[in-house]
């Protein structure tokens, strides 16, 4: 009994995310995912890499609880995951601050605490003082930062856990619609926020460079059905060998894509 309790509460032995033999089919012909196994350690930054149609978004939706797997198990050792999409998907009728406040409101957190938390989160994404702006008054990059703050706000399951350590961030190509300069800035911002919150991150992208820059681990998925092909530990890559690694992963990605030419 105590052993089980330990396993549930011990953050070192429990993965933030454990995906076991997860499959997802949308119909008899369309198999999006096939027996995917993937673990994310607490505080780890994992990048899911793949060509279009590899089911990376599907996998993320399953982890986020927006969809159910056809087979297999997904276990989260964290609270409600924070989800970010390619579009900021801010509610256009609410100000930035109210957008961030909404998940706190939905969780039933009292007003005073909400205001304080919203301010903290906007400060975290360097948008303090811009809470009264509406989404259409913000640039694309700023909107994505509001979306990040809102996603982080949604991880508060109950009133008492304000600065939970077990935050899981699920990101679905959040920077792919941004221009190159803004993307670059937001990538370093994300690394800063990650370091500051100690969150575990599952980051979907089709950009190898981005995956290598951000991730501690890069996981390559094959396409139709999505399957884990390989993974690379990229955490301790020294800057000089980074281009080589990018080339290597690019090569593997090309192989996966070329395999579809015959079928």
């Amino acid at each position: 009994m105590t052993a089980i309790m330990d396993e549930l509460t011990d953050p070192i032995r429990t993965n933030a995310v454990r995906i076991e033999r997860v499959s997802k089919s949308f119909s008899a012909e369309v198999h999006a995912l096939d027996q995917v196994d993937l673990d994310v350690a607490p505080g780890e930054f994992v990048c899911l890499l793949g060509a279009s149609g590899c089911g990376k978004t599907t996998l993320l939706n399953l982890v986020a609880g927006l969809d159910r797997p056809s087979d297999g198990r997904i276990e989260l050792a964290t609270g409600r995951p924070a989800v970010m999409f390619q579009e900021s998907a801010l509610l256009p009728w609410l100000t930035a601050a109210r957008n961030v406040e909404l998940p706190l409101k939905l969780a039933g957190i009292p007003r005073g605490q909400r205001k304080q938390r919203v301010e903290q989160l906007l400060e975290l994404v360097r948008l303090g003082g811009l809470g009264r702006k509406r989404p259409h008054e913000l640039s694309g990059g700023m909107r994505q930062r509001v979306a990040l703050a809102r996603a982080l706000a949604s991880t508060v399951d109950s009133a008492e856990s304000g600065t939970a350590k077990d935050v899981l961030l699920l990101m679905d190509e959040p920077f792919s619609a941004l221009d190159a300069i803004t993307r670059d800035v937001l990538q370093s911002e994300l690394i800063r926020v990650w370091a500051q919150t100690g969150a575990s991150v599952l980051f979907v992208t089709h950009d190898v460079r981005e995956a290598v820059r951000l991730g501690q681990r890069v996981v390559l998925l094959s396409s139709r059905p999505g399957k884990v092909v390989r993974d690379w530990h990229t955490a301790d890559t020294d800057p000089d060998s980074e281009p080589e690694l990018v080339d290597e992963i690019n090569g593997a990605l090309r192989e996966v894509i070329s395999a579809h030419a015959t079928s």
Binding site: G65, L91, R150
Partner: peptide, 8 residues
């Protein structure tokens, strides 16, 4: 979908 992800 956002609403669902935010816990609504």
């Amino acid at each position: 979908r956002v609403g669902k992800a935010l816990g609504a």
